[in-house]
Design a protein around this nucleic acid. Structure first.
Lengths: 206, 206
DNA sequence: GCAAGTAAGGTACGTGGCGTACCTAAAAGG
DNA sequence: CCTTTTAGGTACGCCACGTACCTTACTTGC
């Protein structure tokens, strides 16, 4: 939305450097992302929009993808674990947040970035929603509280187990493509898979 | 490996048409895939290798990706469900096969194709290992036998539940990138998640 | 067998976008 | 002030996709 004033050679204008310039570039890139998606994020356009030139961009990011990832991070905020009082509530809330995000325009951008990264771990790690650590920590927190309440078995406090639900939902997006998963799918994941897996055993509700 | 003889204009050679030509193109594309991966699959090179021209290729496939998918299918064979006698054995075998395939050169090609498809369902459906139907059917078969043997609870015979293990492994590849998952990961998925989830309930082995 | 129709071959080109090279000009800093 | 650093301007090489257009070889139907 914000076009930078085009600078003429020798017009005596102040010339940005360092952090200020970097922020301007990131803002321009983020704007391009939201307007045209990752496909529309071209180095020429970002340079023009930021009122600078490709040269300057390439001095800071090695390639288009790196810039795209950096710009994407500008658009996201980090998540706080919910605390609804029940494991089912917390888990469902986390899935709904993920579902909303992945179905939003930002989700489309995220998918394109993932595509472009082609599974390079050092790049994936820079994407908040994909960073295994962040996501895993959130689920472990939620599950830990449930265990403390006696809702779940302590042995379930294991990264692989704790994150099963979100992994299944992510898979839903990878396999079925773009559109939002219906809420029933989220409920099904929780009720048919996640809760049966982490709930206390050997004491059937008989 | 097989270079087609270069045809000269007016050299009186026989000119391939229809199915024969199509097969030649697919063979050339498949060879390029195995030698140079999807990145190396360029329309010009395929045309040259098949002893034909881009024009002819574009009459059959709308773009590079479509050709890549078609060529990839030439390189894969369909899977048969294993029958080791135990659910654990069958499930582990299926995971090991998937692991081997995804770590092989073919797996790299598959990942690139998935990347390029960018989550378009109609394209994904053409990739055997990604076709939900095929994979789900296999796991349902294996799980169905286990239920018949009394190893698993009948309510687990549900697509979402039956395929949990393979979904987790797929996630491992998506998140951690290329290299083979160690066998311990497969065992962990089976023993910590899959079997606890599908096994009979309420009768702990006490 | 011949003529019309169809499909393959050859070649060139437009296009888009990345990444680089190279020089000029402004700011920073001693 | 003079030097060093960093930004700006511009052009270009390159690659590969996809298209256009014509020529040439097969096929088919009369």
């Amino acid at each position: 939305m914000t076009g930078e004033p085009k600078r003429q050679p020798g017009d005596g204008q102040t010339r940005r450097r360092g952090a200020a310039l970097e922020e301007a570039i990131l803002r321009a890139a983020a704007d391009e992302l939201t307007e045209s998606g990752y496909a529309g994020l071209t180095m020429d356009r970002v340079a023009q929009r930021a009122g600078t030139n490709k040269n300057t961009i390439y001095r800071r990011w090695p390639n288009r993808l790196a810039l795209g990832i950096a710009a994407y991070r500008q658009l996201t905020t980090t998540i706080q674990p919910p605390d609804t009082g029940t494991l089912r509530g917390d888990a469902l809330e986390l899935l709904r947040r993920a579902n909303r995000h992945w179905s939003s325009p930002l989700g489309a951008i995220l998918r394109d970035l993932l595509s472009a990264a082609g599974g390079a771990p050092e790049l994936l790690a820079q994407l908040p929603e994909q960073s295994t650590d962040t996501v895993t920590a959130t689920w472990l927190t939620v599950l830990g509280r449930a265990i403390a309440r006696g809702e779940a078995r302590p042995e379930a406090l294991h990264p692989r187990v704790a994150t099963v639900a979100i992994v299944l939902l992510r898979n839903e997006f990878v396999m079925r493509g773009v559109p939002t998963a219906p809420d029933e799918v989220l409920v099904e994941i929780i009720d048919e898979v996640y809760l049966p897996l982490v709930r206390r055993r050997g004491t059937p509700p008989a």
